[in-house]
Amino acid sequence: MPALPLDEAGKYVAAAYLVFLALVLIYVAIMAGRLARVERDLGEITDLLEQRTAEAEDDERETVPR
């Protein structure tokens, strides 16, 4: 098998390494999506917690005898 000239072979080598790069980047993108979901969940939890503490404070204020 005669060796391919550099400009011919270069295309294929570049393509192969780009495939690898694309795989890693797609992976990063998927993980970014997951991170966004985690962040949203975390926000919901924080809201819930704040709401609860606020309610608890309200309750406390009302139960205080005048």
């Binding site: 098998m1 060796a3 391919l4 550099l6 072979a9 270069g10 294929y12 080598v13 690898f20």
Partner: peptide, 15 residues
């Protein structure tokens, strides 16, 4: 560069 396959053999190190 590979003596026989030339530059394309660089894919080997990835594949």
């Amino acid at each position: 560069n590979d003596a026989d396959q030339g530059f394309i053999q660089k894919i080997f190190y990835l594949h």
